[in-house]
Amino acid sequence: MTRTTTEPLVLHPVGSSDQLDMTGFRSIVAGYTGRDEAQVRHHIDELAAIGVAPPPQVPMFYPMPEAAVTTAATAPVGGDNTSGEIEPVLIRHRGKNYLGVGSDHTDRTLETVDIGESKQACPKPMGSDVIEIGDWSTFDWDKCYARSWVDGVLYQSGGLVGLRRPEDLLKILADRLDNFDDSSDFVCFAGTLPLLDGTFVPGTQWELELTLPDGQSLRHTYTTTKEL
């Protein structure tokens, strides 16, 4: 389920008794964030296969409703052709950086008409556990590994080495967005990996796992439900 606009997004930094109660933050989904041009083209081709036009800019940033970001175990969707993708989630709250794991769940039918609307049509699930990151430039992003499963079948698997580093992505974001600086609170879904077989699956249960360089893993599982 999605939150109401008055409910905070509650996150829990691992190894701390602190709790992040996030309200009034910017919610963003970044697309086409691969470092390698061939990998970016591969993802664009995946989308072209279902009728999605190429993006006007690379990377792309899609603003989301704040209430779309949810840590709930269920995600209500309106269409029959929706699917998720594992994403590292970059978070800033009160000047501190955090890393989480989430899913850019998207309506694939609507995506062929308007990508931004297709993303806004679905919740953006993420795990409630996050890791505090002191400085993105010294964090070993390239040694993080992401996997996702749909209905128990491995769907994505690979390292974040293929995605733009956070400090690079956030610099581009700051250049493009008005009133976005080091004091801005935000949740940014930072891009995904190619699908193992290149085919979107409109499954029901989605499992996400982001393994960090020290062996810790951030996980989240959610189930889609049809909105009435």
Results as ranks from 00 to 15, higher is better:
173 L>E: 05
5 T>A: 13
224 T>N: 08
28 I>W: 03
3 R>W: 02
50 I>D: 05
175 D>F: 00
122 C>T: 14
127 G>V: 07
204 T>P: 00
80 D>W: 08
88 P>V: 06
54 P>R: 02
86 I>T: 10
33 T>M: 09
188 C>T: 10
219 R>W: 00
23 T>N: 09
51 G>M: 09
77 V>R: 10
28 I>L: 11
215 G>N: 07
188 C>A: 13
221 T>H: 00
11 L>E: 04
152 G>F: 04
93 H>D: 12
94 R>D: 12
70 T>M: 03
30 A>V: 07
100 G>V: 09
28 I>C: 04
25 F>T: 02
57 Q>M: 07
151 D>Q: 07
151 D>F: 06
108 R>E: 07
102 G>F: 03
31 G>C: 07
34 G>Q: 15
164 R>I: 07
115 I>F: 13
112 T>H: 06
56 P>C: 01
71 T>I: 11
51 G>K: 08
207 E>W: 02
103 S>Y: 07
76 P>D: 12
49 A>N: 12
197 D>I: 10
37 E>D: 15
227 E>T: 14
145 Y>V: 04
71 T>G: 02
226 K>L: 15
68 A>G: 01
158 G>P: 06
184 S>P: 09
125 P>I: 01
49 A>Q: 14
184 S>V: 14
194 P>S: 11
25 F>M: 06
141 W>M: 11
53 A>S: 13
103 S>K: 05
197 D>H: 13
